[in-house]
Design a protein around this nucleic acid. Structure first.
Length: 835
RNA sequence: GCGGAAGUGGCGGAAUUGGCAGACGCGCCAGCCUUAGGAGCUGGUGGCCGAAAGGCCGUAGGGGUUCGAGUCCCUUCUUCCGCACCA
């Protein structure tokens, strides 16, 4: 083989073998060393991987390798989020058992990860569909049950007719299934298991402030939005001619209650049936109600739908004013927020205003601005929503909105018709799924003892294999008698197992803890191991998990904290969301048919090239357009680097270098100084890119520049000592090593280091070696570039100005003009302001 | 509608703290080498004027602050993302 020819495949296999032999990426707890836990979100094993998937892991691996070089004890594990619908769907379609299908996909994906040389500690590999893992899902569920954080209730759920299962609120997007965007979610009433995430509503909200330093603002914003905390007042309205009956409304603006001209209920309000009893014209009203309920199904146009409503025939009594106002039903009131009923104050709420205009409800102004002209009914074209001073509001007239809200809530409380209240949009997390391929919920139903938890020593409740999957009807497990029929742990009598399985988001809510102690068969994880590795120093994943996965994970962390299992309140210190990979202008995806296969790229260019291009094509947070021509550039670069080092290898191989030794610049040639400065300047900026900026695209560009400089200074065996050349090339190779680790190892060896890169430190740049003896200073006249001069590095401002004024070109331009002032930025520029 | 991010050559992008706009790469042009090139090497490549030196214009549009603005402020437009009757 030609020694000057770079053969990626051969180089990559060679070094992957060496790493494997040395267990190079095994992480071991070591309290004497600082740790660094870097994690990419574990993937669902869907089969082959394309370059869109690889970006995440490439970023993570570069960071892990860099941190390792900096001397940190790095934990960088990988596992498989291997429960979930696709395996089951594949089974229905092709008859392959879900476990078989899943494990074959895992094998494929692992092969890609290995092919790309990602430095994972494979001894810590976990897979959520294995009983060794889901055992602890069940165990955690039982702990939550004990703490009343898991409970069962009959409730209306979001049912996806395609998935044939229940969806969490988070899995409903615009009224449709998150996985079937054209399938409208239907409401259905069934018994469900819930996790009481709302117990932590405030904690999770408060926690976002603590995360502000390390998490992207938009993720925190989405989470705050999702929690949707709102302070207001709950007020009970009596109902005319119905003794003892009452309707509750929730409002943030109780100060406007004297302006209420109706109570408006959602079409799904539970009290509607009762209200309509004995109302004249009931039949017609129920017809309207039915029509509205059907219409509200069509979720797509809920947002844009015009406000519609009808009068129920009943009146409510305003507890503050004693006045009677009509009770309406309208499509713009949400059933599952607040109390599902609102007071309609047209003058001070835009929606109410529009509604009142349409149905000619009275509009009464009860709040006037503190500053500015008063609002007048005859000039009103929209609601006046600003707080102000109350008018026409009985005993509260004259108070400010803020004062009134406090006073009214207190009065309502005293007179027992309301109180101040905080509501959240966040709902408890329904985890029951009528599916097979998930964690069995460890519960038994006994005729005598009712709902009974499976005792810890009977865990895991194993998912039976060889289950016939049809995709129809209810939970597949219900049709497996060996599974369903069991004995009650309490009384020993016959009992039935719960046949629903857990939402797979349960699996991913705590998996990162399992990585700290992946094979523990007595506990989910050992407390001291988790304590050593946690928090996750850097978590990397797609923005699509901004709400679901990340808020559930935060919830689980808090639960485990309260169970005394972990120290921290938040599992993830820093979160990074990488951009998506596009091809031909669209996100790379199997369904769009624009995927670039990861293995194909590794075969064609080598994985180092593919990794490098992934980092080079765009900064990591931005979307990246994959270009076949673009990757060629990286391929060329690595070839050039290889050739250059191979060419000079003989001359420098045996030379001793010491990267920390002081270079004696006094005897250095101009060429040597130039190369050393370029190397250290590059090193300084690349270090900064890795430490703070995370702009690996710029790191790659800088390394390319350094190579260009080396090439430009050929012949490098003239006026460059072997020692200096070797040192510069070493810096180049070390900077490459987190990005393109295989070729870096190979080149490191060529430079005369037989023991590999695994224990080599990231080089420290030396500030003194980045400095030039002379610096170029630009000269501006009136802010326009008019010349450049070289000045000594140590020059003062005055000396610089003097030299600038002496410059022949400048002196011509300023001749005969008056210098108003000069601005000097040392080592950068002089600006001479004329006239 | 509300909130957020962004807009720089033919393309991906660089410019770290208000200080040489376009680094680096792709593409393109010219040359060298070669039996050959989807290899390698050298040079050029924002627009306009000019033989050149050089000049003018230029970071979505308009305005402002400043000696100096891609960067800060105001405003308009466009794109992407999030929320979308949350009472």
């Amino acid at each position: 083989m030609n020694l000057f020819e770079y053969d990626p495949r051969q180089v990559e296999l060679k070094w992957q073998k060496v790493w494997a032999e040395h267990n190079a990426f095994r992480a071991v707890e070591d309290p004497s060393r600082p740790k660094y836990y870097v994690l990419e979100m574990w993937p669902y094993p869907s089969g082959t991987l394309h370059m869109g998937h690889m970006r995440n892991y490439t970023i993570g691996d570069a960071v892990a390798r860099y941190k390792r070089m900096c001397g940190l004890n790095v934990l960088h594990p990988m596992g498989w989020d291997s429960f979930g619908l696709p395996a089951e769907n594949a089974a229905i379609k092709s008859g392959t058992a879900p476990r078989e299908w899943t494990n074959s996909n895992i094998a494929q994906m692992k092969a890609v990860c290995e092919r790309f040389g990602f430095g994972y500690d494979w001894e810590r590999e976990i897979s959520s569909c294995e009983p060794e893992y889901y055992h602890w899902n069940q165990w955690l569920f039982l702990r939550m049950l004990e703490k009343d954080l898991a409970y069962r209730k009959r409730s209306r759920v979001n049912w996806c007719p395609q998935c044939q299962t229940v969806l969490a609120n988070e899995q409903v997007v615009g009224g449709c299934c998150w996985r079937h965007e054209t399938t409208t979610v239907e409401p259905k009433e069934i018994e469900q298991w819930f996790l009481r995430i709302t117990h932590y509503s405030d904690a999770l909200l408060e926690g976002t402030n603590e995360l502000a330093e390390g998490w992207p603002e938009r993720v925190l914003m989405q989470q705050r939005n999702w929690i949707g905390k709102s302070r207001g007042t709950r007020v009970k309205f009596g109902i005319a001619q119905m003794q003892g009956a009452a309707l509750e409304v929730f409002t943030t603006r109780v100060d406007t209650i004297f302006g209420a001209s109706a109570i408006v209920l959602s079409a799904g309000h539970p009290q509607l049936e009762r209200l309509l009893e004995g109302v004249p014209g009931r039949g017609a009203i129920e017809g309207q109600l039915k029509a509205m309920r059907q219409k509200s199904m069509r979720a797509a146009d809920i947002a844009t739908a015009e406000k519609e409503g009808f009068f129920t025939g009943r009146f409510a009594v305003n507890p503050f004013s004693g006045g009677n106002i009509p009770i309406w039903v309208a499509n713009f009131v949400l059933a599952d927020y607040g109390t599902g009923a609102v007071m309609c104050v047209p003058a001070h709420d835009q929606r109410d205003y529009e509604f009142a205009e349409k149905y000619h409800l009275p509009i009464k102004i009860v709040v006037q601005p503190i500053n500015g002209p008063p609002v007048r009914l005859d000039r009103m074209s929209e609601a006046s929503t600003e707080p102000g001073k109350l008018v026409d509001s009985g005993p509260y007239t004259g108070l400010t909105s803020d004062e009134a809200i406090v006073r009214m809530a207190a009065d309502a409380k005293t007179k027992d018709f309301g109180e101040s209240e905080t509501t959240y949009r966040l709902k408890d997390w329904g985890i029951s799924r009528q599916r097979y391929w998930g964690t069995p919920i460890p519960i038994v139903y006994c005729a005598k003892d009712g709902v009974v938890a499976v005792p810890d020593d009977q865990l895991p409740v194993r998912l039976p294999e060889n289950v016939k999957l049809t995709g129809e009807g209810q939970s597949p497990l219900a049709s497996v008698p060996e599974f369903v029929n069991t004995t009650c742990p309490k009384c020993g009598g016959p009992a039935r197992r719960e046949t629903d399985t857990m939402d797979t988001f349960v699996d991913s809510s705590w998996y990162f803890y399992r990585f700290t102690d992946p094979h523990d068969d007595r506990a989910a994880f050992a407390k001291d191991k988790a304590a050593y590795w946690f928090q996750i120093d850097q978590y990397i994943g797609g923005i699509e998990h901004a709400i679901l996965h990340l808020i559930y994970s935060r919830f689980f962390c808090r639960v485990m904290h309260d169970l005394g299992m972990v120290k921290e309140n938040e599992p993830v210190k820093r979160l990074f969301s990488q951009g998506m990979v596009h091809k031909d202008g669209a996100v790379m995806s199997k369904s769009k048919g624009n995927v670039v296969g990861a293995m194909d790229m590794a075969d064609k260019y080598g994985c180092d090239t593919a990794r490098m291009y992934t980092l080079f094509a765009a900064p990591p947070e931005r979307d990246l357009e994959w270009s076949e021509q673009g990757i060629e550039g990286c391929s060329r670069f690595l070839n050039k680097a290889y050739r250059l080092i191979a060419k000079h290898a003989d001359r420098i191989r045996g030379v001793e270098t010491d990267l920390s030794a002081k270079t004696d610049f006094a005897v250095a040639t101009a060429k040597e100084k130039l190369l050393v400065r370029k190397a250290h300047k590059t090193l300084k900026r690349v270090t900064n890119d890795f430490e703070v900026r995370w702009h690996f695209n710029s790191s790659v560009a800088l390394i390319m520049e350094l190579l260009n400089e080396l090439q430009g200074q050929e012949p490098l065996d003239v006026e460059v000592s072997p020692m200096i050349l070797k040192r510069v090339l070493e810096i180049l190779v070390l900077m490459l090593s987190p990005i393109t680790p295989h070729i870096a190892e190979e080149l490191w060896e060529k430079l005369g280091h037989p023991t590999g890169l695994l224990n080599v430190k990231w080089p420290a740049y030396r500030e003194d070696l980045t400095r030039e003896e002379q610096v170029e200073v630009i000269i501006q006249i009136n802010g326009r570039l008019r010349g450049k001069i070289l000045v000594d590095d140590g020059f003062s401002g005055d000396e610089t100005i003097n030299q600038a004024l002496k410059d022949p070109r400048i002196s011509v331009l300023i001749a005969g003009k008056e210098i108003v002032k000069t601005i000097v930025v040392p080592k950068k520029l002089v600006n001479i302001v004329l006239r």
